[in-house]
Amino acid sequence: MTRVGYAPGAFDLFHIGHLNLLRHARAHCDVLVAGVVSDEMLELAKGRRPVIPLAERLEIVRHVDLVDDVFVETQPDKLVTWQDVRFHVLFKGDDWRGTAKGDKLERDFAAVGVDVVYFPYTVHTSSSLLRRALALIEGDEWPGAAVGGGS
């Protein structure tokens, strides 16, 4: 059986943390689908629009050799995404492990036979940190630049 993996993310300001997630994910599946969150979903989830628009983020992720296909996430329920993509394993950063969101994700996917696999979160680089650094270089605050959390 071909093992399909799914690695969701914003993939905004593509950086080494994104590459690390895709590299680790690729090693654990036969086919890797990267889920790229829509601009609207990012705004709902994080309270800010991405720096890089969806069409460009899709193009970047689509051309990473580790990725076999991309899927645009337009709603927050990963089980609905699973119904469309039919992956066998979901990959997340280990910053989700042991959280209420991570625990719910594990329960929901256990019910449909999908494994949730965590990989080390790249602490020293995140899109949020890059946003703050860019704001400092520009000499002003970007809307949402102080919002925490990585992508």
Rank of each mutant, 00 (worst) to 15 (best):
V4L: 15
Y6P: 03
P8L: 12
P8Q: 14
G9R: 07
G9F: 08
F11L: 07
D12I: 04
H15Y: 04
I16V: 13
I16L: 11
H18S: 01
L19N: 09
L19K: 10
H24Q: 12
A25W: 04
A25Y: 09
D30I: 04
D30R: 10
V31N: 09
A34H: 03
V36C: 08
V36A: 02
S38Y: 00
D39R: 04
D39L: 08
E43L: 13
R48S: 02
R48A: 11
P50G: 00
V51P: 00
R57I: 02
E59C: 10
V61S: 06
D68V: 06
D69M: 12
V70N: 08
V70W: 00
V70C: 01
F71D: 03
E73S: 09
T74Y: 10
T74P: 04
D77P: 02
K78E: 01
L79I: 14
W82A: 04
V85Q: 03
K92W: 02
G93C: 09
T99Q: 15
T99I: 00
A100V: 14
K101M: 09
G102Q: 12
D103N: 14
G113T: 05
Y118L: 10
P120M: 07
Y121F: 13
T122I: 11
V123W: 12
S126Y: 09
S128V: 00
L129I: 12
R131C: 06
R131Q: 03
A133Y: 15
L136F: 14
L136G: 13
G144C: 03
G144Y: 04
V147P: 07
G150M: 02
G150A: 08
S151W: 10
